[in-house]
């Protein structure tokens, strides 16, 4: 028999993956189940709630190995293949274990020419890992992201699918990493519109935790 038949080139999703979670861990709590019921009620069929439930599962388990996808499928009474298909389609659903903090550095073209790759290179050096990898201590995963929709505040990054950090400089990155080390939650930053600065003298939100302004973007040294 040809070698590739015995040893499939592609790892199939069902080929007995090593489970990351035990049977006891693989349950939703009653509160989570109530949430799932709410999600399902918002759609004509349970299918619509798949993405919400996958988000819920990812928050709970940190990532989505096959057994978690199976749990989601059972919970929604959907075929495993459909949940697997959805989970593998979207980049924000993590299929393998990531660090505690996932740093998504935007390098799409506005950021590319305003220092996105410099930010990425600085983080690579600082954390000692290449893009796409996790530090050996398991704290940080460094990733190159496609446009995150904050082009006016380049270079920027997103931390663990949550808050955005804008107008990054080496000093700002150091401060951010120090805050993460100290376990402080990163604030939601509100970016002031230039016209608001002129007409209202600053940010329009008085309840904003942190405020940032649009600034002159830096000169990019690297573009890849």
């Amino acid at each position: 028999m040809a070698d590739f038949i015995r040893n499939p080139v592609v790892a199939l999703p069902d080929s007995n993956p090593e489970a990351h979670f035990s049977e006891e861990e693989l349950v939703f709590t009653p509160e989570e189940k109530a949430k799932i019921v709410d999600y399902v009620a918002q759609y004509p069929t349970p299918d619509g709630a798949v993405m919400w439930v996958l988000w819920l599962a990812q928050e709970k388990f940190g990532f989505l190995p096959p057994e978690v996808m199976r749990l989601v499928a059972t919970e929604l009474s959907l075929p495993y293949a459909q949940v697997y298909g959805v989970a593998t389609f979207y980049t924000q659903f993590f299929k393998e274990k990531k660090g505690t903090f996932v740093l998504d550095v935007c390098t799409c073209f506005s950021c590319q020419f305003c220092g996105g790759y410099d930010t990425l290179a600085y983080l690579e050096e600082k954390l000692g890992v290449k893009r796409g990898h996790t530090t050996p201590c398991g704290r940080y995963t460094l990733q190159e992201a496609e446009c995150l929709g904050a082009c006016g505040s380049a270079p920027m990054m997103q931390v663990s699918n949550g808050p955005y950090a804008y107008n990054l400089t080496p000093e700002k990155i150091d401060a951010l990493l120090a805050a993460m080390e100290a376990g402080k939650p990163l604030p939601f930053v509100s970016v002031t519109l230039p016209q608001d600065e002129d007409e209202m003298g600053g940010n329009r939100r008085t309840d904003a935790e942190a405020v940032e302004h649009y600034v002159v973007p830096p000169q990019a040294k690297r573009t890849q």
């Binding site: 798949v50 993405m51 996958l54 988000w55 979207y90 924000q92």
Partner: peptide, 26 residues
């Protein structure tokens, strides 16, 4: 009703957005 995507540029295309809402690959 709020629906949260999960990082796919293609979902900005209208028919693809509908597929995504239905809980399928977009």
């Amino acid at each position: 009703i709020m629906h949260k995507g999960a990082g796919a540029y293609i979902c900005g295309e209208e028919t693809s957005l509908m597929e995504s809402l239905e809980g399928k690959r977009a």
